[in-house]
Design a binder for these strands. Structure first.
Lengths: 233, 233
DNA sequence: ACACCTTAACTTGTTGCCAAGTTGCGCAGT
DNA sequence: ACTGCGCAACTTGGCAACAAGTTAAGGTGT
């Protein structure tokens, strides 16, 4: 981006952050900004399309460009033993979870390169979490079948992995690591999360052990849209 | 982005991630991709300039486009009482810290809107952290002057805030919150961190108390480039 | 045989032009 | 006075053409 584009980006970001998030706030047209800043129209377009990819703005051909309504982010507590479901239900009335995949993990899946996993057959339970009817997080549990054979019997009524494990005799949980990284989504996850190309995601990878039997229950991967959450550590 | 651009983005991202990070790996030219995928050149350019803004690729006019060398991310442990300096020194030989600002905080600074702070006069100590001579993190300590008046006497020899507090009688630290959010940089921080527009940052905000006296020592804000760190929780 | 210069063919950088959608105003008809 | 239609002026969407930098090959001169 050249200096003119950077200047315009900051100008529009200030406009967006200063605006009291009324629905349908209309931004200046491309030609208004061309005249106001005396720069080529293509540079205005470049900045506008960047803001669109960041999920801040949307356009309607022939009408104009508008600031997108942003939800107030919710708090996710990253430590402690409260399940994600409980965390969300305490902050919003409109939370739900949908089971999107439950199947054996193919032998060539990348998960098998993780050191702790080795070649133990795994069962994937994948859930999409919704807040105010918007997809907000993808929760993947890779369960070690030999340490929790009942996992093969789950069905679409599954509500919480915590409750599932407790039902089958696990009372004490332990985690040996939890790692957070920030990335951009791939296309599959972007469609699942219904977000724009440049909304970064936080990926949290951790494990979950039965502390009494000292066996690995699952390897966990959670993908959060970063525009919908603050993370309490 | 339309489907052709998304397809090309994924194609180039796969090329980048499959490449063994040799310096100066040259990517296909715009016209090679135009012919290979039978799409307009402007769409190829759109995708290439996006990858440039993400910090993955750089271009040289008349020569071509190249994959940027990426450093292997380091681990930052987000909990516990180890100072950032110690965390980094245990992982790399080439770490340094530079004091970039130390001054009273103006009365109209946004920091004074934080609930815990009220209107207590604050002193800002800002450090830029380097890894392998690249800026990697900005560390801001907003110190409560009345609870640590010695802060006004610091100079450019300051190495560690932990050591500073210990020198003035603080032996036991406590934190009441630590919040992580993901954002894009503003222009000032982008220049300090020497990164591209679309490298997201992690901002960690926390407080630090003298546990014995039960007084607030500082409000802390750390800004990390997300391409240089994994976060252990 | 080697070195230097020129030019063609490559590369990326910059911007305008045309297409298509929408809205609002003015005019005509009832 | 009201309603409906047409068109001008607005908006964004899509893409090609020209400018400028670099490199390598070929030809010429020593």
């Amino acid at each position: 981006m050249d200096k003119q584009e950077l200047m315009l980006k900051d100008y529009l970001l200030q406009t967006i952050s200063a605006t009291k998030f009324h629905i349908e706030y209309k931004l200046p047209s491309e030609y208004q900004l061309v005249e106001q800043f005396d720069i080529p129209r293509i540079k205005v377009r470049n900045v506008y399309t960047l803001l669109e990819k960041m999920g801040l703005v949307y356009s309607r051909k022939g009408v104009g460009r508008f600031i997108k309504h942003q939800q107030k982010p919710l708090d996710v507590v990253m430590t402690g033993n409260i399940s994600f479901s409980e965390k969300m239900k305490s902050q919003t009335a409109n939370y739900k979870s949908k089971l999107t995949k439950f199947e054996r993990v193919a032998q060539d899946h990348a998960i098998y390169t993780k050191a702790d996993i080795g070649q133990e057959p795994l069962y994937l339970v994948e859930r999409l979490r919704y807040i105010d009817d918007e997809p907000a997080a993808i929760h993947r549990s890779y369960v070690v079948i030999s340490n929790m054979p009942e996992i093969k019997k789950i069905d679409s009524r599954l509500v919480s992995m915590y409750q599932f494990y407790q039902r089958f005799g696990v009372n004490e949980f332990r985690s040996t690591f939890s790692q957070l990284s920030v990335q951009y989504v791939n296309e599959i996850e972007r469609e699942m999360l219904n977000c724009e190309v440049l909304v970064p995601i936080v990926k949290v990878e951790s494990d979950n052990w039965d502390a009494e039997r000292n066996v690995l229950l699952e390897y966990t991967e959670i993908i959060y849209r970063t525009d919908l959450f603050y993370f309490q550590i």
